[in-house]
Design a protein around this nucleic acid. Structure first.
Length: 299
DNA sequence: GCGACAG
DNA sequence: ATCTTGTCGC
């Protein structure tokens, strides 16, 4: 049975979360640390990872966390890990990591134990890096916890530090001509927090790229671009597709194939997900994740 | 009451 | 995030 998730955490919890973000933020490295990152052709780069969490319709707790690893430059999937999980924290803008990151860390840990030679050299994360309220989005958070280069790839502009999706911003987007065109996202302090990137010649909406950990913004944008067959870079796109498929296979098609709108009529989700989840976490999300964070570092 | 709101 | 079918276009 799925636990109830509060609509919004108490102010005290948000305060703890902010303090944790501030503490971990000091460890972020926003420059290139690997040789391949400075190479014009990324020679030396062989594996790029992508992570995502997809949700079960009508259930705020059940989700599928996925990690995929793609070969570079072929962009073929060489590793996939999908897992049903029970989320313990609600979604709060600015605190996405506290909802999703524990399960992503678990996935990376499983890879480390099962196929360490397939460990990606960089991870593309669905969400922001330093382009964030506290300068510490989910891509930074994950990067710090697993000590791997991470890139924040957001599909919508997070309006922080004076950044606004206003008429001027939309005009700048309109002026992006070809795939690869971009413009900097300057925060109020004059710092470049990220880049708006047209990832495809015929894509209207840009991607919002920011540094997660152990990579420069320039390399992050350049790598994202070479991973794009479509608007969303292939590692993130494959993680998304496969996690959604996993949910469909697991919860959506228990019986003979039905047709039309008959297929996904509110199946009893809770019965099956209890068995699927090997993680049973504390019902309270107040301190659980913070404690979990301390105990997780390797590599 | 109104706008904002990564996933 | 998710709800949604076909359809127009390269």
């Amino acid at each position: 049975m799925a636990e109830e998730l509060p609509g919004s955490p108490p102010e005290e919890t948000l305060s703890l979360w902010k303090r944790e973000q501030a503490r971990l933020k000091a460890r972020v490295v926003d420059r290139d640390t690997e040789a391949w990152q400075r190479d014009p052709a990324f020679s030396g780069l062989q594996r790029v990872g992508g992570v995502d969490v997809s949700f079960v319709k009508g259930d705020s707790v059940s989700a599928c966390a996925s990690l995929v690893v793609l070969s570079y430059p072929e962009l073929k999937v060489v590793y996939e890990d999908c897992r049903m999980v029970s989320l313990t924290a609600p979604y709060v803008s600015g605190f996405l990591a506290f909802r999703e990151v524990p399960f992503l860390v678990d996935a990376v840990r499983r890879l480390q134990e099962k196929d360490p030679h397939l460990m990606p050299q960089v991870l593309l994360v669905d969400g922001n890096g330093v382009l964030h309220h506290q300068g510490f989005g989910v891509a930074c958070h994950l990067g710090i916890l697993i000590d791997l280069p991470c890139i924040g790839v957001a599909k919508k502009l997070l309006q922080v530090d004076g950044l606004e999706n206003n008429a001027l911003h939309k005009e700048k987007i309109r002026l992006l001509r070809a795939g690869g065109d971009s413009f900097p996202l300057m925060g109020g302090s004059g710092t470049v927090l990220g880049m708006a990137l047209k990832s495809h010649d015929h894509s209207t909406k840009p991607l919002y790229i920011s540094v997660g950990h152990k990579i420069s913004l320039e390399a992050a944008v350049r790598l994202t671009l070479v991973c794009c067959r479509f608007r969303v870079p292939e590692p993130v796109r494959q993680a998304d597709i496969r996690s959604r498929d996993y949910i469909r296979r697991t919860l959506g098609v228990p019986g003979p194939p039905a047709s039309g709108r008959e297929r996904f009529r509110n199946y009893p989700l809770t019965s099956c997900c209890g068995d699927m989840c090997s993680f049973t976490r504390s019902p309270s999300y107040t301190l659980t994740h913070t404690l979990f964070f301390h105990s997780s570092h390797f590599g």
